[in-house]
Amino acid sequence: MLETLITSALLAVVGIYCVVVKKNLIKKVIGLAIFTNSIHLLLISIGFREGGIAPIITQANLVGFAARAVDPLPQALVLTSIVIQLSVTALALSIAILAFRHLNTLNTDKMNKLSG
């Protein structure tokens, strides 16, 4: 439990650093993905239970299922969030392709037409 929390905090720091500091458009998108994945790790670890079983009902584990299974709700939330993350990443990458076509560079310092 503590290990996953520390890992997710480290990943979040890496992600935020990557989004804020890096100048390359693709690297910014990667940083965003790392940051979101750290949140997914946190969500999954919230539902974790020491020595728990998978939250699927079968004939073998009908008795005492609720007391032993891990919480399935965070897993459903993470799955939904992964789908959202996927579409945002795809959209961001396609916009990065278009930006490269217009500016011939992926450097954000060159994207300064709109400012003020």
Binding site: V19, L25, K28, V29, L32, F35, T36, I39, L42, L43, I46, L73, P74, L77, S81, V88, L91, A92, I95, A96, L98, A99, H102, M111, K113, L114
Partner: peptide
């Protein structure tokens, strides 16, 4: 203009929504 605005928006906007997700995770 549209591409530049959209890229800025997509990075800042998804960053903001990630904070909502983080808040929901902690709240849960």
């Amino acid at each position: 203009d549209a591409i530049e605005g959209a890229f800025k928006y997509i990075i800042i906007g998804s960053f903001g929504s990630s904070f909502i997700l983080l808040g929901i995770a902690l709240l849960y």
